[in-house]
């Protein structure tokens, strides 16, 4: 197989996933900050929910990382 194409594919995989995950985490964090600025008394609860959301968004980027590592080392 062509190693150059595999390298481009691996790079694209992690780059696109990181773009999406970063966008999602940024949007969620921004909204969470807004919400806790409006209602500081439930800031703790919002932080807990934000953490759960961030874990799931971050997971997509990690799946892409696994895929791109597989592309590099398995082929």
């Amino acid at each position: 197989m062509d190693h150059g194409l595999i390298a481009i594919g691996a790079g694209l995989a992690i780059a696109l996933a990181a773009f999406g995950a970063a966008l999602g985490i940024g949007l969620a964090s921004g909204k969470a900050l807004e919400a806790s600025a409006r209602q500081p008394e439930i800031a703790g609860k919002i932080q807990a929910m934000l953490m759960t959301a961030i874990i799931f968004m971050e997971a997509t980027a990690i799946y892409a990382l696994v895929v791109s590592l597989l592309l590099i080392f398995a082929f």
Partner: peptide, 10 residues
């Protein structure tokens, strides 16, 4: 498992 594996492996 993928989350733990991917993070540590990477």
């Amino acid at each position: 498992s993928l989350r733990l594996f991917g993070n540590v492996f990477g």
